[in-house]
Design a protein around this nucleic acid. Structure first.
Lengths: 203, 203
DNA sequence: CATCATTGTTGTCATTGACAGCATTGTTGG
DNA sequence: CCAACAATGCTGTCAATGACAACAATGATG
């Protein structure tokens, strides 16, 4: 009396792609109910497996979160890469990049918070580092190009990356943290980039 | 065999100032072992009270975290206020402010992360909002003064606050998140402020 | 000093993450 | 074709935790 499939496709002993299913469910829960109320057992229930099944795919809860964050960075990196049009004039190019980043922050506030909150597993961070690099790389590329073209000042690229990155990151954090509404954020992008490029001092 | 004080002053039925003791212990734990491993019961043990005692002072765990964050904002706000010298020329004044903020981020990385991660209790946020306002206020004051003196461009103050605030916040987040070492951060402050004021475009 | 609000205490519950041991399935080499 | 064997799931169990209820000691107040 054990083998009694309740619906055609459910109840296979092997789920097929549990890992992916868990990640998907996790991200949905994250979006709906926040990172706090993310429980492995709850996920298992949602996906329809036993409470210990997730353990086969994620060593512990942190591993699940790491995977989630990694996926986030990959999507963000890809979005940024796709949004970067080298043909655009600097200010518009940067604005487009910023808009994309902030858009991601708006649509994935909770996820972004997760991504920021690294609990550096020294091994998981290899992949992570690569993913992060790809997101940061987009910005670096824009600035490097601009520097090569003489559109922005010379000087240590690291420093320029830092300023620009910090400003973008700060905005995104404002959004993710709820200090800034999506509307206000998007409305401010243009000004943000402008002021970054032109400075606050009168010319 | 119940009433047997193990040391002179310990073991009073009423702790005297449990609330404060809990907050202190919590902050220490936060600093040492991170926000994740912060348990009410553990705190109770450290302070030497029963596992349910904290419940008298904090409705639930989140309330404790809120109180912690609030205290953080108060300290930060005070530090910023104290560091702001209206007599200083703009760039130095701003740099001093930034240094103070980043210093706080360095010394209280975990706490800062807590402060960013608001779970808006609509009531607790009144006090919180006031505390936040005080920290943000420092920056606003500097920029408003500068604008009055014609040292920076005119235009919507909100927008200027946003850019500057985002850049500072971003740096602090980099520190709190471990992407930036304290040394690198402090070394970059000067450049950050400079680039903010003067812009990235050549003059 | 009798009453009552504060503040602690013990006891209990459901939930959770982690792990151990076993069961089922899929795969691979003989 | 099938006998290992690896992967992947399952059930059972544990200790820790947050939350709550009922009760006890203390302190404040009229």
């Amino acid at each position: 009396m054990v083998r009694m499939p309740e619906s055609p496709e459910s109840r296979r002993y092997h789920h097929g792609d549990l890992r992916a299913a868990l990640l998907t469910a996790a991200e949905r829960t994250l979006r709906d109910k926040g990172a706090a109320s993310l429980s492995l057992r709850e996920l298992a229930r949602e996906v329809g497996v036993s409470h210990a099944a997730p353990g086969r795919h994620f060593k512990d809860k942190q591993a699940l979160l790491n995977a989630l964050a990694l996926a986030g960075y990959e999507r963000l990196g890809q979005a940024l890469g796709a949004a970067d049009d080298r043909a655009l004039p600097l200010e518009r190019r940067l604005t487009a990049l910023a808009r994309t980043y902030l858009g991601f922050a708006i649509d994935n506030a909770e996820l972004l918070e997760l991504m920021y909150a690294r609990k550096h597993d020294p091994d998981a961070s290899e992949q992570m580092a690569a993913a992060v690099e790809q997101t940061v790389g987009s910005l670096e590329r824009v600035l490097a190009d601009a520097q090569n073209r003489g559109e922005i000042i010379e000087g240590d690229p690291e420093e320029l990356n830092l300023v620009t990155g910090a400003a973008l990151h700060g905005m995104a954090a404002f959004i993710a943290g709820g200090w800034l509404t999506p509307e206000a954020a998007l409305a401010g992008v243009e000004g943000l980039v402008h002021h970054l490029l032109h400075g606050l001092k009168p010319r």
